[in-house]
Design a protein around this nucleic acid. Structure first.
Lengths: 345, 345
DNA sequence: TTGAAAGCGCTAACAC
DNA sequence: GTGTTAGCGCTTTCAA
């Protein structure tokens, strides 16, 4: 194609509108920004002139003088597509109708390392960022953001809970509910698949399991805990290891849905009849949990709502408006078909 | 929290750098933008001064005077999270390292209707947009973008192929390959689950199936074609209808993976042994295709690569650089476990 | 090779 | 109520 640099045609400016309406630029500005102290008469003239000239304010000029870009970033590192999309949709839902736009900053794509987040936020002139787990707990990122004076709100952080607004989720209680469900069904031999050990959620969820096990008089043997990385593949491998044991457990607790689905796959591979021969409970209520066979019993995290709430806090903070410093969100056990009573032995 | 509007601390400007280095602002600008005609001596002094002051150019000021926002939008409407994330990652992969940032514009969230895309693009001061299917075929959107002088590149469009750069995918050939695979396995009674009838891909894929059926001497009976909407739920319902027929087909061709997985679910529900009693072939090679049971035989669309290529074309166009006007991308049949020879009857 | 001065399009002070 | 003026921080003539 012919090389033609991007030179948009001349757009009408506030001066053109002012000239057509026979008023000063400041008056135009006042009308367009809905400020008071303008007569109805002029208001109308300005509006008509703007319409007639198909006038649209130059956002860049506004940004320069207001010292705001109206750009908000979303920083995430999660490999699960449905989680990512939920996050984004939550933030966007809050932003729509406002002047703010969402810039996505996936760690590992846009930025190689979490440390670069701040540099990128500054060079992209972001007004603020929403941090999803686990970046929301990265001490270096938090310190740099503070130092650079970039506002942020966090989704379910677990550390430094005094520095910025955030949404809360009781991971321990949620994991406890997942484990309790299996125990209540009658399971006594339950294996666990852990998530990425560098994520705070991993140990929190393990704590929740531990409490439920203790309540139920079960022993949480080290040998029954398999490592994983929150990915489908890691879950499948952990599942294979678990199912290869001599005394196969009757149930598996996976720390997220992707790994739970991996465990299901491992069970299918060896021809187990599901859910009768193996119960599985996940965590996240992600998109995949509905579509696997059997459909996954799991814990619903209100990801959309938390993302929305975090965006709301961030915007309020940017606008200088009153806002909550922290906002609790409730989890919920979603019972589907993947967990049933153990077969009578 | 106390209401504190966003007033970032004073940042150093190009003037400060010039003062410290003892040169004019223009010289600083030249050095920082890598322009020629500056002595090494001054170059060095300016660089040091900039470092010392921790200077970062004000993107908004640059944007104003260059008449560029360095913001690129991605418009999509697809309900499948893995597809959406693939798209985004492809675009971001091209954008990283450049000045450009990605603003996400999901139709149905950011904008209610496709018609609003242009207004949003303008009010967000986007330099250009990448259009994913099916918006890339929306005549109103295309016309408005052209009129507004907003550059765009498209991913696998099917109409108005002369107006802007795009990546191509031969949907007909891809669908043909999917159908051929089932026929080669020996299937003679094959049901079809169609996608959203308003998407161009739906009829293109049906055409591909039809060609393969004709080649194989099979009759593509109207009665064997079930409507769907590209969603899991629609696929499951179509699957239920298909499996309830008196002469149950031995295989199902679904026009995307989400629907294929829905069909699998319908089969599981009635206790069919898979894949022996029912073969299923999807389309997309989306994330879910790997994790279902049985893993899905499907057609791989190079979504990431196409998104990347479209972003590349758009950026090249914005920069006035030479670029391809269209770029073909190859599909590929991914053989997994969901399609096997029909049971001997 | 370097710099002075004039904007980019808008809003904020401050007169009127 | 309304207009005048001076910037925001940068790039761009154009002259030196």
């Amino acid at each position: 194609m012919r090389a033609r640099p991007n030179v948009p045609e001349k757009r009408n400016t506030i001066i053109d509108v002012g000239r057509l309406a026979g008023v000063s630029t400041k008056t135009v500005s006042r009308v367009l920004n809905g400020e008071p102290h303008v007569s109805e008469e002029l208001r109308k003239r300005v509006r008509e002139a703007a319409d007639q000239l198909n006038y649209h304010p130059n956002v860049m000029a506004q940004a320069l003088v207001r010292r705001r870009s109206y750009l908000v970033g979303l920083v995430f590192e999660n490999p699960s597509p449905s989680y990512v999309v939920e996050l984004q949709m939550g933030v966007i839902d809050r932003l729509r109708g406002s002047h703010y736009r969402l810039v996505v900053l996936p760690i590992g794509s846009t930025v190689e390392h979490a440390e670069e987040v701040v540099g990128l936020a500054r060079s992209a002139a972001l007004d603020g960022v929403v941090l999803a787990p686990p970046v929301c707990d990265h001490p270096g990122v938090l310190a740099d953001l503070e130092k650079a004076g970039i506002r942020f709100a966090r989704i379910a952080p677990t550390t430094q809970l005094e520095i910025a607004p955030y949404t809360m989720l009781d991971e321990v209680a949620a994991a406890k509910d997942a484990a309790r469900h299996l125990i209540a069904l009658g399971h006594r031999k339950i294996a666990i698949i852990c998530g990425d050990p560098s994520h705070a959620a991993t140990s929190a969820r393990l704590d929740g399991y531990r409490i439920a096990f203790a309540e139920g008089g079960l022993d949480m043997a080290e040998a029954m805990i398999e490592p994983g990385m929150f990915t489908f593949d890691s879950g499948m491998e952990a599942g294979r290891r678990i199912l290869a044991r001599r005394d196969r457990p009757t149930a598996i607790l996976a720390q997220n849905d992707d790994m739970a689905v991996g465990a299901l796959m491992a069970a299918h591979e060896i021809g187990l009849r599901l859910p009768d021969e193996l119960s599985v409970v996940g965590f996240d209520d992600s998109e995949v949990s509905r579509i696997t066979w059997p459909p996954l019993t799991t814990i619903q995290q209100p990801v959309f709502e938390m993302a929305r709430a975090a965006a709301d806090m961030l915007v309020a903070s940017l606008e200088g408006a009153e806002h909550a410093e922290r906002e609790p969100h409730a989890h919920r056990l979603i019972v589907r078909a993947s967990a049933v009573r153990p077969r009578a032995t």
